[in-house]
Design a protein around this nucleic acid. Structure first.
Length: 260
DNA sequence: AGTGCATTCCTAATCCACAA
DNA sequence: TTGTGGATTAGGAATGCACT
């Protein structure tokens, strides 16, 4: 495939707050023959989540993320959609892309999120190995000097972080050492335990608990990222968690390396 | 549909008080 | 001192829940 075609496909497939030209420069890739970013009608800019996270974000760059995959187990399945949102908000604060898993998407997964084999297993959809350098460039562009990246996901410990680490392994890459992972599912369970209450701790239950409105019922990565962004801020506010406590409770990227 | 974590439940072991 | 019964504790098994 020609580099020009590949660039166009990447631009059309990755919905990022940043122009792909910028990301490719950051990733050390050629920017020749890219179309004017302003001509790309599919790009999404998200600035909904802003001021709330600024205080927390001072100690680290906080990236809320979510994955859609072909199944549950990271060793047997692949990522089909990736979305993240920088909690500090502002322009260019989101990154979202479908990912070609190079395998079929089971029917029960397609019914859940409307992402089927036909949608992701086609030439225009980047593989994870294509996305990796752009993702790294995006993260670097959001990272404050000397501060870690705090990745936040619901069930990160057992699901999202493991899948991310597995995909990096498949690319013969490793997660950067200054990436930390924070699990909001663990936090939700601690919160309920402290309250002495019993209720469900899945993301939908937390969304309803906090009265967060969702415009879309489909189970998609960016939708869940936007919900989790609000849930995370409300939970950390309720629990009066400090920046240091969040970072101290986070898991290091090395905990999700090849052995996991 | 698979896996891992946290919680709950059950059983066995241990400890202590009391009576013979 | 010894035996018994109740209370407590520890550990393993089972269960529930979270994620797509």
């Amino acid at each position: 495939m020609s580099s020009i075609l590949r660039s166009i496909q990447l631009r059309n497939s990755i919905w990022s707050g940043f122009p792909v030209r910028f990301l490719k420069q950051q990733a050390g890739l050629s920017t020749v023959n890219l179309l004017d970013p302003r001509s790309c009608g599919k790009r999404h800019f998200t600035t909904e989540v802003q001021e709330h996270g600024k205080e927390v974000a001072e100690a680290a760059t906080i990236l809320i993320f979510d994955l859609e995959t072909t199944g549950y187990f990271h060793k047997d399945h692949r990522i089909i959609e990736f979305a993240l949102c920088d909690l500090s908000g502002g322009k260019n604060s989101t990154f979202q892309t479908l990912i070609n898993p190079e395998r079929t998407v089971p029917d029960h997964v397609e019914r859940l999120n409307n992402i089927g084999t036909d949608l992701v297993c086609r030439p225009g959809i980047p593989r994870f190995s294509d996305v990796t350098p752009l993702l790294l460039a995006f993260v670097r562009s959001r990272q404050a000097p000397g501060k870690p990246i705090l990745w936040v996901a619901h069930n990160a410990k057992n699901f999202d972080a493991r899948f991310l680490a597995q995909e990096f392994d498949r690319c013969s890459a490793s997660l950067p050492a200054d990436w930390l992972f924070f699990d909001t599912l663990t936090l939700a369970k601690k919160m309920l335990k402290a309250e002495g209450k019993k209720r469900l701790t899945n993301l939908e239950a937390l969304r309803e608990h906090y009265g967060i409105h969702s415009h879309n019922d489909a189970h998609r990565a960016m939708r869940d990222v936007m919900i989790l962004s609000q849930v995370f801020q409300k939970m950390t506010f309720d629990l009066k968690l400090t920046n240091e406590e969040l970072i101290n409770e986070a898991m290091k990227a090395s905990e999700f390396s090849k052995s996991s």
